[in-house]
Structure formats: C-alpha cells, structure tokens
Design a protein around this nucleic acid. Structure first.
Lengths: 357, 357
DNA sequence: TTCCGCGGTGTAACCGATTACATTGTGCGG
DNA sequence: CCGCACAATGTAATCGGTTACACCGCGGAA
C-alpha cells in the first residue's frame, strides 16, 4: 500500500450528449484556429472585432462552455481555497465563513469547505488538497495546540484566522487576553468582587489566552483566583449549562458575575441559572465572547466581545491570495492583531452587597 | 465583450522551488516508466510488489504529490459539488451543510460553498462552475419561486434540498403544509381558538406551502382566518421581533397562540413579547419550524417541527452522485418527501379563556 | 518443442485548453 | 516604391497525468 492513496477513477464521465463541445469544435465552426478562439475569450484586445463576432456566433451555435478544469490545469491554479473549521454549524464560524466566501468570490476564488470536526485525519486530507493542487491555499480556523499538520509543510500558502498568541505562522486574531481582561475590568467597575469563569477545554489555546486575561484582571483588581468558581466547558451551549450547574453546586460562595469564554456557553449558563430561579443580571451578571447573532436576542441581551469578523476575513483572504501570487513581502509568521469591540448590552448589573450562598 | 467572460490568467504560478516534482521525475528515479508509476498509485494490483516498492521509494525521495488538477482534467471530473445556500450564516443552512459536507466527503467529494445572498447573478456564476466542469453537480437550497437559473440547463446533475411542493425538478423536502397544519392542530387541541401567524415573505415558496397548512388547520377546526393576526417577516430574528410587535399593535383581538414559519422568527417574537411583559407560554403560546440548535435553549424551549436534516442531506448527496455517475433510473423530477418530526417543548400552554386586548 | 496465455512493463496518444513563435498582411515614413 | 513596425492569425508544443496497445518472457498444455 502506498502512502499516497486515492480512489481509482471509476468510470469515464458519461458523456452529456451533444453539449460536450470543445474549443476545436468552436474554431472549426468559426473558421479560425483554436488559438484565436482562446484569445477571443481570454485576451479579446488581441483579436479583431469581426473575428470576435464570428467566434461568439460559433460559441452560441454549439453552446460552448470552456472547460475550466483544462484551463486550471494548464495554468497550474485551481482558483479555490480551502477553509478549515472545526464545526461549520457553530454560528461564529459560519458567520466568518460567510465573509470569507464573499471576499474570495469577489477575487475570483471559490471556497472549499473543510469541516474537520476536530479530526486530524480529515484535516490532513484537506491539507493534501492544496499539496495536490486542488486548492491554492488554506485558511485554518482551528486554534491548533501542540500538533499542527500544516506546519510540517511550511511553503504552502496558509493563514490562521482567529488563532491565539501562541499560534505558529501567520495569524489574524484579536488579543484574547486583553479582551477577557477588559471584561473583568468592566465587572470590577460594577463593584463585582467575586467573578466566576466558565472556561473552555483546558488544552485549547483560546482557553489559555483568555484564562490569562481573566487572571490578569483579577490580580490587578486585587482579587483572588478561586478554583471553586471556575468551571470547564467545551464552547457549546450544552456544556455551558453543565458548567453553570456545576459551579452553582460546588462554589464555596456564589459568584456575583460570570465571565464566559464564548457566547454559546454564556447562553447555556443563563439557561441554567434561569432554571434555578437565579436572575440575570440582578443576581448574577454574565458576559460572553464573540458576539454571535443570538447574543443580541437572548434574555437578557448579552454583553460580549465582538471580533471584527468581516474585517478579519477580508485581511485573511487578501493575505492568502498574495501569498498564492508569490508575494512574500510580509514575513511568513506575522500576526495581524485586530481591535476587538466591547459590546454593552443588558446582561450585567452592579453587584449587590454580601451575597452569600 | 463576449458573453462568456472570465479573468485572464494573471501569472504562471510562481514555482514552489524544488517540490514541483512530477510523475516523470519519479519514473526516472525509480527506473521505470511513467505508466508504471501511475499504475502503482491508481491500480496497484496491476504492478508487482517489487516495483511498487521502488516507486514508493522514489516518491519519498522527491516528495512527490500527484497533481490532482491534471488527474481530474484527464478524467473529466472535478470530484466536487457546489452547495448553493441563500445565507450560510443562517443556522438552519449551516447545520444542513455540515451534514452535506460529511456525506460528500465520505464519498470522496469536496464541497464548494456557494453563498448566493439571494443574488441571482451570484447564483448563475455558481451554476456556470458546473457547466464549465469545475464542479460535477449542484445542490440548491433556495426554494426558487418564479425564475430558476438552473432550470434552463436541465441536463446538469442537480437537486433541490428543502424545497417546496411547487419546486421544479428533483427535490428532497418535508411536507411543509402538513407540518404547519400539524402545529395548528396541536394548538387547537390545547383549546386555542385564536391562532396568529408570523409568515415569511409573501412570494417565498416556503411561505406559500406553510400558509396553506395554516389555513387548512384553521378551517378544519372551524376557525376563521383573521388578517389582523397575520404578520409578515423574512425568516430572520429581527423580522420576527418586528412582526410580533406589529401584530400586538394592530390585532383586532390578541391571539392566544402564534405559529411562526421558522424558529428564528419565533425567537424574535418571544423576545418582542417578553419586552412587552407578555409571558410565553402563559399568555401566548409560540411554535416554530426547523428545530435549529437554539430552539432547545431559548426561554422557554421552543416547540417546533424538525426536518430530518442529516437524512435529507444524505439522500441529496446519494442522489446527486448517482446522477453524476450517469444513473438516470429515478425520474429527474422525483420529489423525495421525508417525514418531519413534531418536537414538543415548553413554549405552548393550554389557552386561557376570553383573553381580550 | 511449439504455442498460448498472462502478468508485468513500456511507448505514445490523449484530455482541452494556453501561448511562444512563425507567418501573413497592412499602413506609413522615408 | 521599399522596408519596417505592428496587428491579426495560425501552427504546434506544452501542462501532468491516464490508459490503449504493443511487447517481452515465462510457465504449462499439447
């Protein structure tokens, strides 16, 4: 068994009847050479108007459509990029992808969707697509921790989007630690002295950066880090519900505010609190991270951190296409750190005094 | 200007240094012919083990990666399908796409994402991708109304997913009218006699089907259709908020229940009611449609209709790949109508008597 | 021994475009 | 009127694979 394996070609494509016309057929009908037809399409300024007219007519007659597969093959470009996400049904990712698609499309590039489901094997398969020229570059949205399959092949056009401080290679991101600290500062300014945390999975780079910001915030405010009001989720709504319940059950003393590492967990936490008749924000304030669409519509609307999604997507596409075009003027391991936005809504209130379990 | 236009090839791809090895290079190193190398990869059973070993060694030496662009060109297959959605950041679509990607990937096909943003021009460009062989087929998730660009070219592998009764061509869907009627029936069974509707845009095929079900439900229960408790949205949360507000302001008499044509509008409506201190479900019951992830986590959790997303996605992929392989055994305009699920949660309560504005 | 069949391999045509280079024609300056 | 520049077009090589077909050598049957 070879280490490069792929499915055999099953059957020659069943010919789609008559409309399989090619450039030679058109040339014949128009009474010109194939070169002229090709030029009429790709470089019309080099062809006389009369000839263009003839070619156009012939094209209509045989309903010709240029075979882009051949074209791309010849030019050694696929004009597509793959976008790797851990989970496309996560609204944060789908919202970013929407922007990526827009910008890529504008530049003549198609987007190949790579839903990795956090499976390294799938991820590798998508990386192979660019090694084998099926895609020209790759935008990765997984904040990779230890092992990154892309890393090994460091001359393929690659960029990480929404990564973290520790991300290797080029990365477009916000300052996760600073943003999280910003949240803590805000809560402190509302007189909260007991601020809980619903974190992501321990090894996750985002978790690491945001935890750092949380701790910095506490420290600066002279507050102590209390493990009993730190719960671990995995960035899903459901895990937010669990984490909040766990915290309520085991906290030495209940927090008056909870920082959640993303909006989904915040939404989950609010639901958990609600079902325990704990009022948000009167009893406990909640903040999220990401500003997904639903953050604005939950009850109460969620105070959160917005990443400039569209801007980041655009930068990512621009940069990637440059790399694809061979422009290596910006160093390969540049981090573009974009400004985040603090989005004030209604999920926080000033701390009440002396709240005890 | 020709009617087939595309960007000229800008520059020959900047050669990526040494690893541009091709099959001839490998053949040379292994001391065999290119045919043997090709066979070693695609049809290893036709090559002696010893030779395979030699080839494998040579491949490692030069770090060879077969050029899939060439391969696909030769076999006249791109091994990718385009998935057209009106808006990928809509959770319903992103959840379906997630399934499509999975099933396509399993079958060796890549997914090209086509976010049309309801723009016909963009849609046409994606359809052109399959005409020009950049994709082998297309899954369309827009319920097209009058004009459908795909229609015109009816021999390209095409399928509509989540369409409606009136959808032309092959379509995989649920019975929208029946499902909506099911909702009305349920509310009637809870003694609701005044059931409002938050509909989608008037021309939208989904709106048409679901409206039909709504009316049938009313009629069967002997209830009258009252325009003053029918509001129009556009399937977004925000429009749900507006629609609900509008209905509250202009209803001849307030409804005791509201059927929403999708979950997002239902979520929006719940928010609007909440801000008016109308309690769901105590004062007004709400039902949605689609069962997006958030439906389970809003307050109260939303009673809704679930479409068998994964199943539908799978059928769509299977059918499309068959068509691509030239299997036309199932008629080209078959509608696969899959069973929907009634998902009972907490957003409905028995009607109170005599609720007046 | 002869011949056939078959497994393993090589040669070269082929897919459908692009484009370097050759060729032809045309107008204009000297 | 000659020659040159340039515009318009054609010829054919080329991209990197796949595969039909030819070929060779060997073992077994006749």
């Amino acid at each position: 068994m070879l280490h490069i394996a792929f499915a055999p070609i099953v059957a020659p494509r069943p010919k789609g009847e008559e409309n399989m016309s090619n450039i030679r057929e058109v040339a014949r009908r128009a009474g010109v050479s194939v070169a002229t037809v090709s030029r009429s399409l790709s470089h019309p300024e080099k062809v006389s108007p009369a000839t263009i007219e003839k070619v156009k007519k012939a094209i209509d007659e045989v309903n010709y459509r240029p075979n882009m597969l051949a074209r791309n093959f010849r030019s050694a470009r696929s004009y597509s990029i793959v976008v790797l996400v851990p989970d496309i049904s996560n609204p944060f990712f789908s919202e970013v992808i929407s922007s990526i698609e827009m910008h890529a499309h504008k530049r003549g590039y198609a987007v190949l969707l790579g839903d990795t489901q956090d499976d390294e094997e799938r991820e590798k398969r998508y990386i192979r697509m660019v090694e084998t020229r099926l895609a020209d570059g790759i935008i990765q949205m997984r904040p990779h921790s230890v092992h990154n399959p892309v890393e090994s092949n460091n001359d393929l056009p690659y960029i990480n989007l929404c990564g973290t401080e520790g991300t290797l290679g080029c990365c477009i991101r916000v300052d996760n630690a600073a943003a999280t600290k910003h949240m803590v500062d805000y809560l402190v300014s509302l007189n909260h002295r007991r601020i809980g945390l619903i974190a992501g999975l321990r090894g996750n780079p985002h978790t690491i950066d945001r935890l750092k910001g949380y701790k910095q915030g506490l420290e600066e405010a002279g507050l102590e880090f209390d493990k009993s009001i730190v719960a671990e989720g995995e960035y899903t709504i459901w895990s937010g519900v669990n984490a909040a319940n766990h915290m309520m059950d085991t906290a030495a003393e209940l927090p008056t505010a909870i920082v959640c590492m993303n909006d989904q967990m915040a939404i989950g936490a609010m639901q958990a609190l609600r079902s325990r008749n704990i009022k948000v924000p009167e009893d406990i304030s909640i903040v999220g991270f990401d500003d997904i669409d639903y953050a604005r519509y939950c009850d109460p609307p969620l105070t959160t951190i917005a990443q400039p999604r569209d801007d980041m997507a655009q930068v990512a596409v621009e940069y990637l296409l440059r790399r694809i075009d061979g422009d290596n003027s910006v160093p390969i391991d540049t981090h573009f750190v974009r400004p985040y936005d603090f989005v004030l809504r209604k999920s926080c209130a000033p701390a009440k005094k002396h709240q005890v379990k």
